[in-house]
């Protein structure tokens, strides 16, 4: 088994996600940076569906059996038994080996994938941890020091994955409440820079609105409507928040737009203090990028 020897905050088990349960009140969860999760899997010949998502402080593991492991996402430092290795990368661990993921220069989330399945019971068809409703993963919670993870059957062959290297503004499609924002506010949203605030987690990332784009917003009383991952919602006090993988399935705050699927991975890796700009694209264009 694998033992957690050091755990930063909010390290969780994730697989592709728990889809199809929105009406039940459960959002899909899954990796914050899906591309990097797949990239780590693609570095292995075979990978279990479930991996570990860690955050900026990293994580330490010890294994008492041989296992092949791959890492990707952001830019962290990694060492096996104290010897530094490259990022992203893989290693064959022997019984007694120790793997350390240490803070690095970029990114909020990184991933560990193994050549075997992490043997926790699937809940409603998925091993993903949903921290908001405390479901899945290891007892619905974040990993902590002393946790042990049993490894099960050999994983499946993985497709090769290219790492994405997009830059520039985060692209979004206008949202269901876009018309409720004055045209001057919509224009300012496109023109002004925002900043990633330190308040970010799997539910959402709050932005600092230094130009006060949304400060004068009237308190709208809206009927509750479905929320999707990437929705840019403006809270009652004018704070913009981008809702992420563990979002509530419905909500009644105004949403000006939704970050496109292609740019979500890049967005979630922006560290607190990073400047972020937004630019709108048509839905058809966003969908063209996904092919």
């Amino acid at each position: 088994m694998i033992r957690v020897t050091r755990a930063g905050p909010l390290c969780t088990l994730q697989d592709d996600g728990r889809f199809g349960l929105l009406a039940t009140g459960i959002s899909a969860s899954g990796p914050m940076d899906r591309g990097s999760f797949a990239l780590a899997g693609g570095l292995l010949e075979r990978a279990g569906t479930t991996g570990i998502e860690f955050t900026t402080a990293g994580i330490g593991l010890a294994t008492d059996l041989p296992v092949r492991v791959a890492w990707a996402g952001g830019l962290f430092r990694v060492a096996v038994n104290g010897a530094a290795l490259g990022w992203p990368g893989t290693a064959q661990l022997a019984a007694g080996d120790r793997l350390e993921i240490l803070p690095g220069p970029a990114g909020n989330y990184g991933y560990l994938r193994f050549d075997r399945e992490i043997d926790v019971p699937p809940v409603l068809g998925s091993r993903s941890t949903n921290l908001t409703v405390q479901l899945g993963g290891l007892d619905g919670r974040a990993l902590r020091v002393g946790d042990t993870l049993a490894l099960g059957s050999l994983g499946q062959p993985q497709p090769d994955v290219q790492s994405a290297t997009e830059e520039g503004p985060i692209r979004f499609v206008w949202g269901l409440h876009a018309d409720l924002f004055a045209s001057a506010v919509r224009a300012a949203f496109l023109e002004q820079p925002f900043q990633i605030s330190p308040k970010l987690d799997r539910m959402g990332a709050r932005l600092v609105d230094k130009a006060a784009v949304f400060s004068g917003l009237a308190n709208l009383s809206l009927v509750s409507d479905p929320i999707v991952c990437g929705d840019i919602q403006i809270l009652g006090d004018g704070t913009p928040i981008v809702l992420l993988r563990d979002h509530q399935p419905t909500g009644g705050y105004p949403r000006i737009g939704t970050v496109i699927s292609t740019d979500l991975d890049r967005f979630v890796q922006l560290r607190p203090g990073s400047e972020v700009r937004f630019t709108s694209v048509a839905v058809a264009r966003a969908q063209g990028m996904m092919r």
């Binding site: 499609v173 949202g175 269901l176 009927v223 409507d225 479905p226 999707v228 991952c229 990437g230 929705d231 939704t258 970050v259 496109i260 699927s261 839905v283 966003a286 969908q287 996904m290």
Partner: peptide
């Protein structure tokens, strides 16, 4: 209305 690039919302009110 589109809800992002993977959902469509049909609003009856």
């Amino acid at each position: 209305v589109p809800l992002g690039d993977t959902s469509l919302l049909v609003r009856f009110g």
